[in-house]
Computed example of a mutant assay.
Amino acid sequence: MTHRSSRVLTAIGIVALALTATTACTTGADSPEPSASVSEPTTSASPNPSRQPDSGQRATTGAAESFSAWLAASRVPEVDTACAGLAPQLVQRMIAELNANAGVSVSTCEEMIAASAQLYKAAGQDASVDIAVQHETAADATLFVTYGASGDCGTVVMHRAGTAWIITEQSEECAR
């Protein structure tokens, strides 16, 4: 039983790192600090209609709010919603990392999100995060995210095509 518990905790840690890869970047002495530390999400609505995506359609949420909603969906899990918020290249990277490091075998985004949510629940980790907006335009954003439960951190790089923000494969976890 102790060996099994140890294996589950190890798997949870690895999954946390794999999912953090969706929200992180390598940091170091030459890494830029966030341009603004934001405790609450900011919106990206612009008073200039020409900067809005999709020929003037107005976005209803900013990148930080969209990321928070994605994180909540990934923990429930609402697999369709969570998967819709990830770029295909990022999904493939996360599946490969999860399969290689967590002792589970998944082949789809939906399986990955469901397995990760189960591991987070087993570890009792909530989805609390501190989000600092480093950069945000109508179409692109970079967020620095720190997870409250684990202290893991990283940058989330997002792109908006239309009205939906997508977490891209450029997102990476902080260096250890």
Rank of each mutant, 00 (worst) to 15 (best):
R51M: 06
T168Y: 04
T137I: 02
L19I: 06
A82W: 10
S68N: 11
Y120D: 03
A21T: 12
C109N: 03
P53T: 07
R58S: 10
G124L: 09
A114P: 02
A24Y: 01
P34D: 06
E65K: 09
S35A: 12
V106A: 07
N99S: 06
A45P: 00
R75M: 03
G151S: 08
S50I: 07
D80W: 01
D80H: 09
A127D: 15
T108N: 07
P41S: 10
T2K: 08
P41L: 03
A82K: 08
S37K: 11
T60Y: 01
C153K: 11
I113L: 07
T137Y: 06
V91R: 10
S74A: 15
A161I: 04
A21L: 03
V15A: 14
V145R: 06
W70V: 05
S50V: 12
E110H: 14
D126Q: 09
T142P: 01
S44Q: 02
M158T: 03
E169K: 12
G13V: 01
A117Q: 05
W70F: 15
A164K: 13
R75W: 01
T61N: 02
L86T: 08
S5H: 07
V38F: 03
S74N: 07
T81Y: 01
G151W: 08
C174V: 07
M112P: 00
N101I: 01
V156G: 13
A82E: 08
P49R: 04
A139G: 07
A100R: 13
P32K: 08
C174I: 04
A24P: 00
T168W: 08
C83F: 10
V133R: 08
L119A: 14
A115H: 02
L119I: 01
A161M: 02
A59E: 09
A139F: 12
A73Q: 04
E169F: 02
E172I: 00
T137A: 07
L98I: 15
T43R: 02
R4V: 13
A132F: 03
V38G: 04
S50K: 11
A115T: 15
T61V: 10
G124H: 10
G151V: 04
A11M: 05
V79T: 15
A69N: 13
P34T: 05
R160K: 12
A87S: 15
V38D: 14
T142F: 01
I12H: 05
N48G: 00
G28F: 02
D126A: 14
C25P: 00
G151L: 04
L90K: 13
G124N: 11
T163P: 00
E173P: 06
I12G: 05
Y120M: 10
A72H: 12
A64Y: 07
A63H: 08
A139E: 14
R7P: 00
P32L: 11
A69T: 14
R75N: 02
Y147H: 10
V104F: 07
V8R: 12
P77L: 01
A138D: 13
M94R: 10
P49V: 08
A73R: 03
A72M: 03
C174T: 13
A64S: 14
E97A: 15
G56I: 11
Q92M: 06
V157L: 02
P53Y: 02
I12P: 00
A123Y: 04
A141Q: 09
S44A: 11
P47I: 05
S5V: 01
A63C: 12
D140L: 12
V104G: 02
